[in-house]
Amino acid sequence: MSTISRDEVARVAALARIELRPDEVDRLAGELDVIVDAIAQISSVATPDVPATSHPLPLTNVYREDVPVPALAVADVLAGAPDAQDGRFAVPQILGEE
C-alpha cells in the first residue's frame, strides 16, 4: 500500500527545508513507502493502555544553578560563520521581515 505520495514528499521536504530534485522526490516516495509499511506492524501492540516512554531512564528534576559560566569568545563564535559583519552573523534577507 502506498501511503506517501510524491506531493506528500514535496510538502514534507518544504517543511524540512530541503530542496529536492524531481528524481529525488520520486525515489523518496518509493523508499519511504517501504519503511512506512514496515512500521504499520507496530500499531497492533501500541494500544491505548500502554504508556509511552520518552526517556530510557526515568530521571526528573535535573537543574543547574543560576550561576554564569564563561561565554565563548566572539572570535570563536563567528569563526565558523559563512558570513559575518560587525560581530554578527550575516544571513540572506528574511522574507516577511521589515
Binding site: 518544504a14 524540512a16 527545508r17 530541503i18 530542496e19 529536492l20 530534485r21 529525488e24 523518496l28 523508499e31 519511504l32 544571513v91 540572506p92 534577507q93 528574511i94 522574507l95
Partner: peptide, 20 residues
C-alpha cells in the same frame, strides 16, 4: 532569501540517507 538558502544548503549538503 534565507529560507531558500537554507533549503539549497540542506539539499546539497546532506547525502541521500540523511535526506531520507
Amino acid at each position: 532569501t534565507a529560507e531558500r538558502v537554507m533549503a539549497a544548503t540542506r539539499g546539497q549538503g546532506f547525502g541521500d540517507e540523511v535526506k531520507r
